[in-house]
Amino acid sequence: MSFQPIFSQFQLELDDHNDRRERLIKASRDVTNLSKKVIFLLHRIVNEDAQDYRAHSKHACERGIEKLREVRDIYAAIKPEVQGDSFWHHHHSISPGLQEYIEALSFAHYLGHGTLITFNQVQAALSDDLGAPYFPLPKEDYLLGLSDLTGELMRFAISGFSRKGGRARAVQVCNFVRDCKSDFDRFAPFVKGLRKKQVVTSQSLEKIEHAVYAIVVRTSEYDLPQEILDDIIGQSMSS
């Protein structure tokens, strides 16, 4: 074949690219699995019984962040493969894991601080100890990862319903998720896929709203302070 030299070059390039792609997809899948496990872990910890909820919640956050260090190790390892224009070349492969990571990270952050993790905080979490980023954080992934957070917050609010202080927390989460929805709505037309996720967020919000409503309605019959009600429930649940 007379074009052998031409195509040999492509063969090398394409093989190299495919191999790298495979490695990055594998890494991304690992990141996804780790992140999912952390999310599960966070749910599990906050569902444990505890005396001081605030401290317990901070503890959950720490445990989560600690476990997520493994993700940073993965990103540190693939750093050389996603330098320069290579990052955007492989963005499709990296994106799913990255979003799941941001979801887990922001969940842990919410538990620890009660706020939404900022863009810079996520970028910092994607940097080595000297502050050099493993790769640039795309704002789309940041927003898409965060918009998955609302689903986890819904689970958190609803399944923590019967813990001490769970009702008050559900109200907090409800307002927090409502603000998130309002903020993200502004970005929806700019970020592909965000609109669809906002639909899920709306559903989650409605579920929390309904749960909070149920609390209010049920406690409205009794002229007892929330604290005492909590105690009564706590006693009967643990009996």
Binding site: L116, F119, K139, L143, C180, F187, V191
Partner: peptide, 18 residues
């Protein structure tokens, strides 16, 4: 969401649109 973040992201996104 952090107010500064909202503006910052919005700016970035509008740059992309342009």
């Amino acid at each position: 969401m952090d107010a500064m973040d909202v503006d910052y992201l919005n700016e970035l996104l509008e740059q992309d649109v342009e």
